[in-house]
């Protein structure tokens, strides 16, 4: 496919008729949407909705069965290197090289993005400071707690000043202070830095707080896409919380029998 021409209104992510099929199961069904520069885009959905599959296709981890992903004007299938060079990825369970120190790990990742040495050194220093990891810069990662690893991965994803940050469950394992820091950073990098954040999360509170636009996936289909106000308007629930809207939208397609089955399981005598 040809490159998409960039302009002031050109999307940072353009997903076009994306499908992913595992055997005879269609995890993502004809998905199309766009995310614009400077936005924090929330990508929500219940378990098994196809969020992680979509996210993996956007980061180039998974090949789509059909359709295409264009990032910053570069088609991910035909120009993967150019597309990936503008993306920073933060996975939900960050597996990293445990036998490296934090600085060595960041230096390694900087090498993958061919960063300049001096820039690398100053960025590492800056980010370690921002994420409160300076004291641990020379310690082996295997000694880090899950929260520290998560902060390190976020810091490393920002090393090359990506135009797009793709984030999968950013708050897993973070303490309240870490969570607040990440939320603040997301808002800051999108507001002042002009970066785009594509955020997949189960935390509706986080989504409500930081996202400009929210999309809801259900059974491989994007069933809603808009600002929180637009979603409230569509559901005719002015002033309601995102949690209520989300539950109402997803319940419409759920099996009503599920509730009674759960009741039977945990109700009096249900455990017999």
């Amino acid at each position: 496919m040809s490159e998409t021409p960039m302009g002031p209104g050109a999307p940072m992510i353009a997903v076009k008729h994306l499908r992913k099929v595992y055997g005879d199961f269609e995890a993502v069904k004809d998905l199309s949407f766009e995310v614009y520069p400077g936005e924090v885009f929330g990508f929500l959905g219940p378990n098994g909705a196809g969020k992680t599959t979509t996210l993996r296709m956007i980061t180039g981890l998974l090949e789509p069965s059909s359709g295409e992903v264009v990032i910053d004007g570069h088609n991910l299938q035909t120009s993967p290197v150019a597309a990936k060079s503008v993306v920073g990825f933060i996975p939900d369970r960050p597996y990293i090289y445990e036998k490296l120190t934090a600085v060595e790990f960041m230096q390694f990742v900087a090498g993958l993005y061919r960063l300049d040495r001096a820039t690398t050194a100053s960025r590492i220093e800056e980010l370690l400071d921002l994420f409160d990891l300076v004291r641990w810069g020379g310690s082996l990662i295997e000694n880090f707690s899950h929260g520290m690893k998560q902060r390190l991965v976020v810091a490393t994803a920002l090393l090359h000043r990506p135009k797009l940050l793709v984030v999968d469950e950013p708050m897993v394992g973070l303490d309240p202070r870490g969570t607040r820091l990440i939320k603040k950073i997301f808002r800051q990098i999108c507001g002042d830095g002009g970066m785009t954040v594509f955020l997949s999360t189960h935390s509706l509170e986080v989504a409500e707080e930081v996202c400009d636009r929210i999309a809801i996936m259900h059974r491989g289909v994007m069933i809603r896409n808009g600002t929180l106000e637009e979603l409230r308007g569509e559901m005719d629930q002015p002033g309601s919380r995102l949690e209520e809207i989300f539950l109402q939208i997803t319940a419409e397609e759920d099996d009503p029998a599920e509730g009674s089955a759960l009741g039977g399981m945990f109700g009096a005598g249900g455990g017999q």
Binding site: R117, W136, G137
Partner: peptide, 21 residues
Amino acid sequence: GPELARRALAKLRSRTGPLNP
């Protein structure tokens, strides 16, 4: 930790050019 990190960063700064993957 901090000492090793400081040394590693100083080593990076002392050289020029982009890192090679």
